[in-house]
Write a protein that binds this DNA or RNA. Structure first.
Lengths: 203, 203
DNA sequence: AACAATTTTAACTACTTAGTTAAACTTTTT
DNA sequence: AAAAAGTTTAACTAAGTAGTTAAAATTGTT
């Protein structure tokens, strides 16, 4: 699978993720792919088309696909645990994914409108997640606030890694590693505690 | 206070925050300031120097200054409440601040190293905050995990606003506004619940 | 009015970058 | 071996951009 197109995609992903659309250079992508600029333009007619391919792929990875799990009939606590576990796996293998997707979406939010037009399944997934916390046997007052707190606690540390590294952990890489190693279990415990607290209040 | 230098700073802040260092154009900053490019370069010799001025200012705003509050002798619950309230005020008035600072720091993390060399007060502030949760009468097991959860819940929604807007709230601006209006009190409640839960476990 | 400070105009330089082109070269397929 | 597909070389175009310059015009000051 290391044909030229794959090499280009891999190189483009690295460069775009590291430098963004504006900061990336076609020459650098070519160098990174071990080819020349002419061939790069032969495979992808323009920088924009290449970027679009990379961004779409990144966006798909970034948006959790939890349809099967939600439909599995498990209870909310189990689903939350599974969700956190699965999402952390994605982020641990693609630590720069959130900053890339979020950064580019902030630079050009119109990109999202285009995506939403295509993907109808996305919003319905959110609906299902919400109804998970608000049904006959389960009545969470602020399911959206809760869900956004959850994804905040998961994603934000990956986005703010330079700040954690230098300011909170004072440049100590070991502390940073330890923090991320413990993060998944900490967030899981916190989420379940928040859920329990919110439900108690409703009684 | 609408002399030329101020007009330039204001314009540069708008353009840099919206488009980043790479995406910003000196011509656009000049237009935005209502002056011409020659005068812009007369006041700020280079794009980099202008950007540095804007970024330093933004960074100072972004990093919470809570020294006085922490030293006030109030208990952790009170300080957390004050912190959330104060930080939300900053972000509500500068909603794009986090994405700007974090985005530029991810693009060039070496910028932080420079800052840290100058500002010694910063790390000591973190120390004080930590000792707030770990002392004779108070023993929180994971003060760093807790603090990072707290700032995640506060900051992340501002960074991920396009995603909230389009995916979670399906483009409904009213729902987005409602979410942000309720966010401060929700996060405060959550933070205090997490704190209480963590302390109970230690007994 | 005269002078000084500020700002504009407009052209310019130097450099970077995306994208193109055509011919030569190399590898793979038949 | 011949043909086809893939790749390189190297030069080029066109456009954009940061930054400069000098003279003219405007505004503020004495």
């Amino acid at each position: 699978m290391d044909n030229t197109e794959t090499k280009i995609i891999d190189a483009a992903r690295r460069v775009f993720v590291a430098k963004g659309l504006d900061g990336a250079r076609m020459q650098e992508i070519a160098d990174e792919a071990g080819i020349n600029k002419a061939l790069l333009h032969y495979y992808f007619r323009s920088k924009q088309k290449l970027f679009d391919a990379i961004f779409e792929e990144a966006f798909q990875q970034f948006i959790p696909t939890m349809g099967a799990t939600i439909a599995s009939g498990k209870n909310p606590q189990e689903i939350i645990t599974i969700f956190i576990d699965a999402y952390f796996r994605v982020l641990e293998q693609n630590p720069f994914l959130p900053q890339f997707v979020i950064g580019e979406l902030n630079r050009d939010p119109s990109r999202l409108a285009t995506f939403m037009a295509e993907k109808i399944g996305l919003t319905s997934l959110v609906d299902k997640a919400m109804s998970l916390f608000q049904n006959e046997g389960f009545n969470l007052k602020n399911p959206q606030q809760f869900m956004i707190s959850l994804i905040s606690m998961i994603i934000f540390p990956f986005v703010a890694k330079p700040i954690l590294h230098h300011i909170i952990f004072k440049g100590d890489q070991l502390l940073v590693d330890q923090f991320f190693a413990e993060r998944k279990s900490y967030v899981t415990t916190s989420a379940l505690q928040l859920l329990a607290s919110s439900l108690n209040e409703n009684n």
